[in-house]
């Protein structure tokens, strides 16, 4: 999988591309937690996530909790169908702040 970060409108857009599984979720976690440590607002672009497992979801949960503590923005945007299915299975689709598109996430 790939992680692509870019600055946009004062936030960091982190695009996760491919399969976020146990092999790659530690990298995703570190990437997101570094941004949380810098108190950066983050929009996670999940449009190209083909697969995500419990370890990937756990990375998102951890970042979400850190953002809440910081009072910074942490939004999951354009969540792909396979990723949405797993969020629903975890009943986290009602917990995370979701946006239909990255643009919507930036202005939320």
């Amino acid at each position: 999988m790939k992680i692509e970060s870019r600055e946009l409108d004062g936030a960091v857009v982190v695009a996760l591309v491919g399969e976020v599984d146990l092999q790659h979720s530690p990298t995703v976690r570190k990437h997101l937690m570094d941004l949380m440590f810098e108190r950066r607002p983050v929009v996670v672009d999940m449009g190209l996530v083909d697969y995500i497992d419990s370890s990937g979801i756990a990375s998102l949960v951890e970042a979400y909790q850190a953002a809440r503590k910081n009072g910074t923005r942490f939004i999951l945007a354009a969540v792909s169908q396979p990723a949405m299915r797993v969020l629903q299975l975890a009943r986290l689709d009602k917990v995370f702040a979701l946006a239909d598109t990255v643009e919507a996430g930036l202005t939320a």
């Binding site: 497992d53 419990s54 756990a58 949960v61 909790q65 797993v86 299975l89 975890a90 986290l92």
Partner: peptide
């Protein structure tokens, strides 16, 4: 327990759910 939002421990829940 799904009401306890924290990282980890989700896997077994997924298995039983599916």
């Amino acid at each position: 327990d799904l009401d306890d939002i924290r990282p980890g421990g989700l896997g077994t829940h997924f298995i039983r759910e599916v």
